[in-house]
Design a protein around this nucleic acid. Structure first.
Lengths: 348, 348
DNA sequence: ATAAGTCACGAAAACGTTTTCGTGTTAAAA
DNA sequence: TTTTAACACGAAAACGTTTTCGTGACTTAT
């Protein structure tokens, strides 16, 4: 088991100084062609590669970015990671991931773990718990130490940093307008409790669409799910609630759900109640994941372009890292990614 | 924008030496209580945290592990990552991800990028292209430099390293036996081309089960899909092939598919042909992803315990890293994760 | 023959730690 | 009073780089 070779070893072996080796490898004009050739040949033979850690220390730059997300087993977030990884790699950066698991303390710990020199900047989407607690000190501290942050999807407006968000409001509005155009008269909304920023915006989009078409929103058509529960394990509870919604409102002919699972559950319940999709009820979901595509009937849904979000976020962060020309009074951007309604079988 | 504070700055500020500060913070007995208190208070005030990069350089240990996977937008792999992250974090390690995107060269590049000091060891699952090319020099080189590797799921038997694998053969056999016990007389197999190691093993499991029950395997019941195509985009092609299978073999009453998507497509085609699941045809898939759980009918499937695989892999790697007592003649383990048949609506 | 200039290289500092060893001061023991 | 021991701290090396600056040996021009 041979250790990785270092400049020092090459220098000793060739009986020159470390500086000479370093310069020779970087093709400095200071070094004679003879020596360069000798050194480069030797380095190649022993497969020399500069030690990244040493470079990071010297340059005070790690060329690594940290991404912290609430959950990785999730189509949306993994697509974002893919986007981040793609541009990060192309631009010479590595990506280190931290999972907050929707917990505030894990988010804080993860950030502290990485902020001590391991990375140059953060890309993150905040956890539900953080959204509830509204405790953002860790973001402020990190930024005050000169480490840039880019937030995506679940952002917090109080924090001044670059952001990449989905146009949740318009996405929702377009979806609901689609239902309205498709002659739905009684459109229900299945959403989350209001503290989830994106849930709130999508709810607002639903309301906007109704208002625009002079439809009176009815409270009994709005189902707010408590998603602090892990809904994967509380599937029946979810379905019960939806079934209740249907039974109390027999005239529902359209459903807009703020995520895939709610939409799928709605379809399942509808089928159970003998309703045909899309003839009796039309359904639109949010987030273009695998479920939407492969369900039967396949689900019309609002795509968020997750990968593109990741790409934008990474570009934003790396631009900031590389333009540290101390612009003073830095300016922060918010990039809005437009949604796209992907029409499938669950709507007419 | 204040930079992170360093030992040197604290030392200058308090008019002591760097060594004294360092020792005081680590509560060394060499330092007087007075000085310790002074230093510790100051450090706390300025929120001092040792610079990770400097520590890594000094200790020749980064406390970071690299994981390289073919694809992150994939339920199985993201679950593995979650497992890795979980134990890595608990044991004080960070995780840095690289995506090979099923490409040999990206796999190599990613490994080289990380092997230069950024990480202490690898966890990886090899890309399809690497499996085809059978070029494993990058693994050997990495290991010969003293960097341990743990392979999971898609492993290569020629390489001597720790491994975590799924019992694909038995998982498949059990699934097919389940179909046999459920009175299926004509069981079809939908699998991949043979170079994918796991596909091969699952195919073998299918054959074993048939043989055990004295059923003659028929070539026309075995459909081998070329999955170098991205099947997400070639869905229709896939369905066409399956439809052909059904039409040429009208008596098929059981399907075993080596992944979720094949199984789902089979169900879709069956439904289209007017067949009832599970009464006319029973279906079992492999990999317990979201699709299996939320499809209608929900899919009986072979679960691989992906998260557990990730956990085991991480434990294996970290154990190796921390027991570098130079056991000489090191020994490598292969941990086999047993599968579990999760019965749902697609079987009787 | 001397001054000036070029060439090829080495010494050393720096990045931020930890740790070994040395040393001056004070207190205890002879 | 002198020797020894304990105490509290600092200097320096090391991890592996890059880069600035200095310098000796030539070469060229005066």
């Amino acid at each position: 088991m041979k250790r990785k070779i270092t400049l020092k070893q090459i220098a000793r072996e060739l009986d020159v100084s470390i500086s000479t080796v370093s310069k020779a490898l970087r093709n400095s004009a200071e070094i004679s062609d003879d020596t360069k050739q000798k050194v480069q040949a030797f380095a190649k033979l022993y497969n020399y590669r500069p030690n990244n850690i040493a470079l990071s220390l010297k340059n005070r730059k790690t060329n690594t970015i940290g991404i912290i997300i609430p959950e990785i087993v999730h189509h949306f977030f993994s697509k974002v990671i893919r986007g981040v990884e793609l541009v990060a790699n192309n631009r010479g950066y590595n990506v280190i991931v931290g999972l907050s698991n929707e917990s505030f303390s894990k988010e804080v710990i993860n950030m502290e773990m990485l902020a001590n020199g391991s990375i140059d900047g953060f890309i993150l989407s905040i956890s539900k718990e953080t959204q509830q607690l509204q405790d953002y000190h860790h973001f402020n501290e990190t930024m005050s130490q000169g480490m840039p942050i880019v937030m995506f999807d679940r952002v917090v407006s109080d924090i001044n940093c670059d952001k990449v968000i989905v146009d949740d409001l318009n996405g929702a509005r377009n979806a609901v307008e689609k239902l309205i155009k498709n002659k739905c008269k009684s459109i229900a909304l299945i959403t989350t409790k209001d503290y989830v920023s994106v849930g709130k915006l999508r709810t607002q989009g639903y309301l906007d669409a109704l208002e625009k078409h002079q439809i009176q929103p009815k409270a009994e058509l709005i189902l707010k799910i408590d998603d602090t529960l892990d809904y994967e394990t509380h599937l029946e509870a979810l379905e019960k609630e939806i079934e209740q919604l249907f039974k109390s409102n027999k005239n529902i002919d359209g459903i807009f759900a703020v995520n895939e699972l709610y939409a799928l559950s709605a379809m399942k319940v509808a089928r159970k109640l003998g309703l045909d999709i899309p003839n009796d009820i039309q359904v639109i979901g949010f987030t273009d994941g695998v479920l939407s595509k492969h369900s039967t009937p396949s689900l019309t849904t609002v795509s968020q372009h997750a990968q593109q979000m990741g790409e934008k976020a990474a570009d934003l962060l790396i631009n900031k890292l590389e333009n540290k020309i101390e612009t003073e009074e830095e300016e922060f951007q918010t990039i809005v990614i437009e949604t796209e309604l992907i029409e499938r079988e669950s709507t007419k």
